[in-house]
Nucleic acid binder design. Structure first.
Lengths: 209, 209
DNA sequence: GAGGGAATGGGACCAGGGTCCCGGTCACCC
DNA sequence: GGGTGACCGGGACCCTGGTCCCATTCCCTC
């Protein structure tokens, strides 16, 4: 099983290589630090699996995945990323990645995912699986504020970044009135008096950037 | 040299351990995956250096750093961060970290930083070094936002906890007008438009509870 | 003593934020 | 079919928040 590593963090590449080399039959045939390099190395080294970071300088993992899948449809690509957001998950899957693992997963789970992708299977980490299930069920699942609706959470997230009502309205293509109405509900559910307190609560819960 | 690793990413911990174990005299005595665990292990294992990630589930690296420095002022804490953004790095240093390295740094540089922190030195990147110098040269203004006056910082701190103008006025025995006037100055100095954005900035810098 | 900045307030003004109440559409479920 | 809830929006209303003036009192420094 030949593996190609593509990640712009030397430390992380080192960890992956150390992990993979413990496994009999696994061999790290190359390392790339950006998407361009990843595509070139994958085409020349013919690995069974490419472990691909999404965020890399220059050509990112998403674009590299698209190019590789275009030329080698059977190549297994395991996307490895920090971000857990819905957009990334589905963008990666649409691009043709066969697996999606968060960087926070345990070593054994990661190795199992690499092996599975090499065998042609598709795997997702448990965290992402939960995320997908939540996304599919759409219900007010296990978010930071489960009592909020989807829309209310979107608005709160923008609020947590200091956006004004008008900016939120523009960002979500809503009327100013709708934003204010939603926020009134959010404040009630969070049991806060105004937007400033809501920002405090939201950022305590890890929202915002 | 005894090292404790605190990061919620097993893969990254693995990479760091592999790196450190190449060095004679270095020993990874423990691994923690959140701030709570990091504090407990550091107090029981007595390492020379704690390599601390900032973003961890539950008690984050910032709070863990504060608690550790409180109990073991001489303990070297090396913060490991994704990005070099001013607010978080500065907050970490304010919490008592003796250095920080980006996750993207090369292995040798990372090892050098760990060794330096173990020796009691402090290591910072050029961007932070500039900021530190400015912070120190602006005298014992002590805290983020050196451009603010003492009173303005007090008010901003209350604001960062979601207090209204009236509440701030009562808390500080001031007129409502005075609070508003001070806040107008604070907003100008922080280059934000309103209190919500000020809350965001303040909490990014580690203010508030 | 003159100057400047920090701190404290007042007056006037008004835009944005927030509330309450109302209407409608759509999807889902009993 | 009827009910419920999310989502979208309007009207009217009030008040906090924020700004731009202004003044006063300290205190520190030149």
């Amino acid at each position: 099983m030949k593996v190609l590593l593509a990640d712009d963090h030397p430390l992380l590449r080192h960890g992956l290589r150390a992990l993979l080399e413990q496994v009999a039959g696994a061999e790290v045939v190359g390392e790339a630090s950006d998407g361009e390099e990843a595509v070139a190395l994958a085409l020349s080294l013919n690995p069974d699996v490419v472990v691909m970071d999404l965020v890399m300088p220059g050509v990112g993992g998403l674009e590299a995945t698209r190019r590789l899948v275009d030329q080698r449809p059977d190549l297994g690509i395991l996307v490895l990323t920090m971000s857990e957001d819905d957009a990334s998950v589905f963008a990666a899957l649409r691009a043709g990645a066969r697996g999606y693992v968060l960087k926070g997963t345990a070593g054994e789970d990661f190795l199992a995912a690499v092996a599975a992708v090499a065998r042609g299977e598709a795997v997702y980490g448990p965290a992402v699986a939960r995320r997908i299930r939540r996304f599919l069920t759409t219900g007010p699942g296990t978010g930071p504020f489960p009592e909020l609706t989807q829309r209310e959470r979107e608005i709160l997230d923008l609020l947590a970044n200091g956006k004004s009502n008008a900016e939120i309205a523009r960002a979500l293509f809503l009327s100013l009135k709708t934003v204010k109405n939603h926020l009134t509900n959010v404040f009630a559910k969070l049991q806060v008096a105004d937007r400033a307190q809501a920002v405090v609560r939201a950022r305590q819960a890890g929202l915002g950037s």
